[in-house]
């Protein structure tokens, strides 16, 4: 039995069963059973698309993976975890809550929403803004709406590869049904999964996988100018820069819209992690890593950083200390300004 592992929620008999930290098991079970790490209802996750009337089938599949939508809920959970000893009974109780809630049929979303979901509006609308930008650039998008499944990136990250293999089959089938030839991923984590990991695991449909950044970059000449007369600083996400090799595209896009940018001390393939990956298990360390990255970004003198990954956006947000007027924009939010004007 792993010496350091916590007693799992489902395994009260520790003498005979191997145990994992409960938070890992909850995330795994939720993805496998509910199609996303927090077991949020698909109707809720796809609610941002109201009004866009995107078809379910088409050449270009717009894929959110529910990742931006999940952020406020994850933040709520993390804030809870930060102040609760993972070894405590309270922690176990909290982790059990989701299961109890599901078993008793109580609306889980209401519980989560009632805890802390103040950023919900912002993160949900990033999906809308990104879709709108792509449409304005002439891309004809489809969206799988309520059928869209999370990419399973966390299953991969946390080591649940057996479960991922099975789960990836379901995701691949759901993508195949859309008849898309191209998937445009809003999150670099999803792009990494479809581009690099899935082909090793399942018979993945022969589709081209692209990030939102690449799609915009290809039509950057059509972007409206942005009236922002101060330099912004670019935070490269680890996945985007090191796994997908996308760095210059972001800079080209900013040049196209007439915005000057500054490079932080650590950038491109040398970028510093936002701390996001350790948010669930080591929230305090995650926050300190985020604070240090915020320092690197703000040391450039810029007052605004542009982010192109949902997890970086959320993690770095927690690294901005009180009274610091440094602002983080997702690159989607920033580019959307041009269309609003």
């Amino acid at each position: 039995m792993p010496k350091y592992f916590l007693k799992g929620c489902d395994y009260p008999n520790m003498a005979t069963k191997k145990t994992l930290p409960p938070v890992l098991e909850i995330l795994r079970d939720n993805i496998v059973e509910h199609g996303n790490p927090l077991a949020l209802k698909s109707k809720e996750l796809s609610s941002w698309a109201k009004g866009l009337d995107l078809p379910e089938k088409g050449q270009i599949l717009y894929y959110t993976g529910g990742e931006y939508q999940l952020l406020p809920y994850i933040d709520s959970l993390v804030k809870t975890l930060t102040y609760v000893d993972p070894a405590s009974n309270i922690f176990s109780w909290l982790m059990e809550a989701r299961k109890i809630v599901n078993k008793t049929g109580i609306n889980a979303e209401k519980i989560y929403a009632s805890i802390l979901a103040k950023d919900k509006e912002r993160y949900f609308s990033i999906n809308y803004q990104a879709a709108t930008i792509l449409q304005k650039l002439g891309y004809d998008l489809c969206y799988d709406g309520k059928n869209e499944l999370y990419s399973g990136a966390l299953l991969y990250e946390l080591g649940f590869w057996k479960e991922l293999k099975e789960y990836a089959g379901k995701v691949a089938k759901s993508i195949e049904k859309t008849e898309a030839k191209t998937i445009v991923c809003l999150s670099p984590h999803a792009a990494e999964m479809f581009k690099i990991i899935y082909p090793k695991l399942v018979d993945f449909p022969k589709v081209e996988v692209k990030t939102f950044i690449e799609m915009v970059w290809e039509k950057r000449d059509l972007l409206p100018q942005i009236n922002y007369n101060q330099p912004v600083v670019i935070h490269d996400s680890c996945r985007m820069a090191r796994e997908l090799g996308i760095t210059q595209e972001i800079r080209d896009i900013l040049t196209s819209v007439g915005v000057t940018y500054i490079e932080p001390i650590r950038n491109k393939e040398w970028t510093t992690c936002c701390g996001g990956p350790s948010k669930m298990l080591f929230p305090e360390i995650s926050k300190i890593v985020a604070e240090r990255r915020i320092n690197e970004l703000s040391d450039t003198g810029s007052k605004k950083a542009l982010i192109s990954c949902p997890y970086c956006l959320s993690a770095l947000q927690s690294g901005i200390v009180k009274d610091n007027d440094f602002v983080l924009d997702d690159i989607v939010e920033f580019l959307y300004r041009g269309f609003k004007n």
């Binding site: 792993p2 350091y4 592992f5 990250e157 090191r242 040398w270 992690c273 701390g275 360390i285």
Partner: peptide
């Protein structure tokens, strides 16, 4: 691997070490 478990989960898998 069991003794290494906490360390394995502390890694951010950010990949800058590889650079």
């Amino acid at each position: 691997v069991e003794e290494a478990a906490p360390m394995l989960y502390t890694c951010l898998r950010c990949g800058r070490c590889v650079e």
